[in-house]
């Protein structure tokens, strides 16, 4: 319903109030995702087991599609190039008038089947994973020259807390309303595995 402007201060007040509420409350979600039942591991993972689990996620298309080797994002379960020739752009957020945010917002839009999360963007070129082996991806994320200058602790926090990373477990539905495939390891297990791997000194197998 249209409520015409009555006072100059009123909208500002509403804006502050609603903005505040939005900031405090968890984002609403229309996704049909079920609450996951996480099997509890009986024994703590050793470093190599943890590595395996972490890599099952990082090599999944949900991650690799936005860590492409070139300047074109990929999309979909078949990792095709992003439709309409979408490009990385200078700051990894798309080109001047066709940014990621032209279509992608801070959360999934399940009416449109357009995925979204805060800071929706491509991983920088230095963080390209497409075509890399598990070992190479691991080396890459531990290498401050390529991982955005992160320490191991910062990398752990990126992998376990960043909303864009965690979107992989809440990927919403596609344009046909079909739920997107999630990584083969649950979010909780992944977070545990990342921590266990780091705690074990982030070991990388020979191959």
């Amino acid at each position: 319903m249209i409520i015409p402007e009555r006072s100059r201060w009123f909208p500002v007040l509403i804006l502050l109030l609603v903005g505040g509420l939005l900031g405090l409350s968890a984002p609403e979600n229309r996704s049909n995702s079920q609450i996951e039942v996480i099997p509890q591991s009986a024994t703590p993972l050793d470093g190599m087991q943890a590595f395996d689990q972490v890599m099952q996620v990082l090599t999944h298309k949900r991650c690799v599609n936005c860590h492409p080797a070139g300047d074109r994002p990929r999309q979909g379960e078949d990792s095709h190039y992003h439709n309409f020739g979408v490009q990385r752009g200078k700051g990894n957020h798309g080109v001047a008038a066709l940014t990621c945010n032209t279509c992608h917002q801070a959360e999934n839009n399940n009416y449109a089947g357009v995925p979204g999360a805060p800071d929706w963007s491509l991983a920088p070129r230095s963080m390209a994973w497409e075509g890399l082996s598990r070992v190479e991806i691991a080396q890459s994320i531990l290498d401050p020259a390529r991982n955005g200058g992160r320490t191991l602790a910062q990398t752990v926090s990126h992998l376990t807390e960043h909303e864009l990373v965690l979107w992989a477990w809440d990927p919403g539905v596609d344009a046909n309303g079909i739920p997107r495939e999630k990584p083969p390891v649950s979010k909780v297990d992944f977070i545990k595995a990342v921590r266990a791997w780091a705690a074990a000194g982030a070991p990388i197998p020979a191959k």
């Binding site: 279509c103 917002q105 449109a112």
Partner: peptide, 25 residues
């Protein structure tokens, strides 16, 4: 309605946005 055709392109704070995939909130 899928942010694919661009017929609903508007500007939000000066940026091109496809309104069909933009929740009003």
């Amino acid at each position: 309605g899928k942010a694919a055709c661009g017929a609903c392109t508007i500007h939000i704070d000066g940026e091109a946005v496809r309104a069909c995939a933009y929740a009003v909130k």
